[in-house]
């Protein structure tokens, strides 16, 4: 007999027990564990997603801040550079101005010094030249300097000719004022007479002369009448000398350049003729 009813019943019971056992020990715990794990994985994935989103947000924020910072830094740098440039320019300008002011002041001072030095040199030279000339004349020619000056002046008067003479004659005729003769020294009476005589002789008339002593007329004699002048003085020589000296002072590196003591070169239109340091010129 293939079918045993007791065995069937026993096997059915066995199977039902097996079902319970499997449910108890296998399916329930396994399914539970799987569900739990799936939940956990889902949760972790969700967490990871959230974290990713957050990280992304933070990264973007960081990038934005970085960019902002860069921009600010650039702006600050640009501004600082601009300010520094402006400040530098201002300081440079200030320094330049100060330097210019200083330079101008220094130049003024130097010019003043130069002038006073020149004046001093002129004064001394004049003195020395007079002294030397006076001595030389006294020693060699037995005459005085003033005497010689007056003589030269007289000769000049007599030598007047042409247009100059006519001009003077015209002035002397029309003018009621006396002719002014200025000299650096007091003219003795014989000299005065000599000059008067020379004038009368030259213009063939009685000329009224007024004599004045003027230290400015450096060791010379001059005749002025209504803007016209006949003169002889040592001043032209002195000017020439002064120029030579200042050129020497200005160019200490060129000691070779020897200035020539030619009064003509300096006096220009004053020079009348030859080596005579005399001038007849227009006085405005």
């Amino acid at each position: 007999m293939l079918i045993d009813w007791f065995t069937i019943a026993a096997q059915a019971l066995n199977f039902l027990i097996l079902v319970w056992l499997m449910k108890r020990f296998l399916y329930k715990p396994i399914l539970h564990a799987i569900d739990e794990r799936e939940q956990r994985i889902a949760k972790e994935l969700a967490d990871a997603d959230a974290k990713k989103v957050e990280a992304q947000k933070e990264s973007e924020e960081f990038e934005r801040k970085n960019k902002e910072f860069d921009e600010q830094r650039d702006a600050l740098l640009t501004r600082a550079t601009e300010e520094a440039k402006t400040e530098r320019q201002r300081l440079l300008d200030e320094a330049r101005n100060a330097a210019e002011v200083l330079h101008a002041k220094q130049r003024d001072v130097m010019e003043r010094e130069q002038r006073s030095l020149n004046d001093e040199i002129t004064r001394r030279t004049q003195k020395e030249v007079f002294a030397i000339t006076r001595k030389i004349l006294a020693d060699l020619a037995g005459t005085s300097l003033e005497e010689r000056i007056c003589e030269v002046f007289r000769r000049r008067l007599r030598d007047l000719d042409g247009e100059e003479k006519e001009g003077f004659a015209e002035i002397l005729k029309t003018s009621s004022d006396p002719v002014l003769v200025r000299s650096a020294f007091d003219l003795p009476s014989e000299q005065r007479d000599g000059i008067q005589h020379a004038l009368n002789e030259t213009f063939s008339a009685e000329i009224h002369v007024r004599f004045e002593t003027e230290p400015d007329v450096i060791s010379g004699v001059e005749l002025t009448a209504n803007g016209r002048k006949v003169a002889w003085s040592i001043a032209d020589y002195l000017t020439s000398l002064e120029n030579s000296v200042s050129e020497l002072l200005k160019e200490p590196s060129k000691p070779e350049a020897e200035p020539e003591a030619e009064p003509e070169t300096q006096t220009g239109p004053k020079a009348k003729s030859g080596t005579q340091p005399a001038a007849v010129e227009e006085v405005e």
Binding site: D4, T7, A10, Q11, N14, I17, L18, L21, M22, F25, L26, P29, I30, H32, A33, E36, R37, Q39, R40, I41
Partner: peptide
């Protein structure tokens, strides 16, 4: 009989095996 006995053996193996394997169940990966 052998049917019942071997059935018990199978049941035992299944139950004990399941129990052993699922003994330390956790949600660990």
């Amino acid at each position: 009989n052998a049917t019942i006995v071997f059935t018990w053996v199978l049941m035992l193996v299944l139950a004990v095996g399941s129990k052993l394997i699922t003994r330390k169940l956790s949600s660990d990966l």
